[in-house]
Simulated assay, not measured.
Amino acid sequence: MNNDRNVEFFRGIADLINSVADLDNLLNMLVVTATRVTGARASSLLLVDKKTDNLYFHIAIGDKTEKIKQFALKKGEGIAGWVAEHNKPLLVKDVNSDPRWSSKVSASVGFETKSIACAPLRDAGEVIGVLEIIDRDDGEILREEDMERLQAFSDLAAAALVKARSFNNVEKRKKELQSELAEKHRIIGDSPAIKKAIEDCRKVACSKATTLITGDSGTGKELFARLIHELSPRKDNSLIVVNCGALPETLLERELFGHEKGAFTDADSQKIGLFEAADGGTIFLDEIGETTQAMQVKLLRVLQEEMFCRIGGQSAIKVDVRVIAATNKN
């Protein structure tokens, strides 16, 4: 490939790292493409097992794919093991004359090897895997330019791995927090009154209608608001809780509707309001009875027209928000 095609090719692969959700498919595509671009006879991606510190064959391309995946290498064992241990790429043009070569895998699967190139995959300088290619498909030994291309692919594979692992860690922590939150907000009780309240939540959950929850302070109105949200089609979007009784009217208006830059003395930048942040989800207005009549009129407009203006703004902002309110007043 010429330089211009190289640039376009690797740019396209880099874009795929950001767009392909399935890590194994992406890695397999990178290894297959590395094999094709270098004209290699076979290739493998080995990853480091954190528990054993050994290398295992995650992906193998060639005639002996399934047999090769049964093997594992210790760090320092064979060319790939040497690369993992020393954190350096290595091209060996004649494996039989190199003391670092181990024929354990190739001899076991009946795959004769002449030359091999290996490049480490790194995360913050630490080796997390090795990408290797074996011989050229045209019968020639591997060359320096093949090594250079292999290193480029190993960097791409490492980037894909790091990104995927970071994403998986975030997803894992998200699920843990969701589980903790669900447990924290779990409604406990089997009295007829509790059962009826839960059943009422189920009935209104799929509706978009504004819902009012009444009850004395400390009776768990927010728990039932969360239950309605979790049972609704909006459960994957935000639930924003606002304690209306804890904020003075001017501050509450700023929080709910946001403001434009310069709307008042301290408004040195634009601020998105909670109604706007809850678009597509649910907003829970606790202690709605504590708000002034003027504020209730403004809230009523949002409920009726599904739009509002930021403080200091002229353009109407349309939102799709389910409103659940609660009060301890009759």
Rank of each mutant, 00 (worst) to 15 (best):
V323A: 11
L247T: 01
E222P: 07
G81V: 02
K104C: 04
M1F: 13
L227I: 11
T113Q: 10
D200V: 09
G81N: 04
A80P: 01
T33P: 00
W82I: 01
R234T: 07
L91E: 13
V170L: 14
T250G: 09
P120R: 05
L303E: 14
K114H: 14
E8Y: 13
E144N: 13
L231E: 14
Q293R: 13
V31H: 02
R36F: 07
L303I: 15
T211L: 09
G281Q: 04
D22A: 06
N25M: 11
E176S: 10
S238Y: 14
L23I: 14
G78L: 08
A157Y: 01
L47A: 08
G139N: 02
D24Y: 09
I187S: 03
G12C: 04
A60C: 09
C206P: 00
I68V: 11
T292R: 09
H259R: 10
K172C: 00
T35N: 15
K298S: 03
H229N: 06
T219S: 06
D94I: 03
Q270H: 12
Q314E: 15
V323R: 12
E171F: 08
V95H: 07
S191A: 09
G312M: 06
K174A: 09
T210Q: 03
K174H: 12
S166D: 10
K221G: 11
D15R: 15
I283D: 06
G245W: 12
A84M: 02
V37Q: 11
L30M: 07
N28V: 01
G125V: 10
P99K: 04
R136Y: 00
E305C: 07
L73G: 12
S43K: 10
V302D: 01
T113E: 13
K69T: 05
A225C: 02
K196D: 07
K114P: 00
I311M: 11
D94E: 08
L73M: 14
E144V: 14
V7C: 00
A160N: 02
A14F: 08
V31L: 04
K235A: 15
T113W: 01
S108L: 09
A277L: 12
L231S: 12
T250I: 13
A157Q: 01
E306F: 13
K271E: 13
N243M: 05
K195H: 04
D49G: 08
T265W: 05
I228K: 10
L256G: 00
E126V: 15
P99W: 02
F284K: 09
D320Y: 05
L150Y: 01
M1G: 15
K64N: 10
E306G: 02
G78S: 09
T210E: 05
E132I: 01
S154C: 05
N96V: 05
A34Q: 03
K203S: 11
T65G: 00
T211F: 00
A205C: 00
I272Q: 15
N18H: 12
T33E: 14
L274V: 05
K196Q: 07
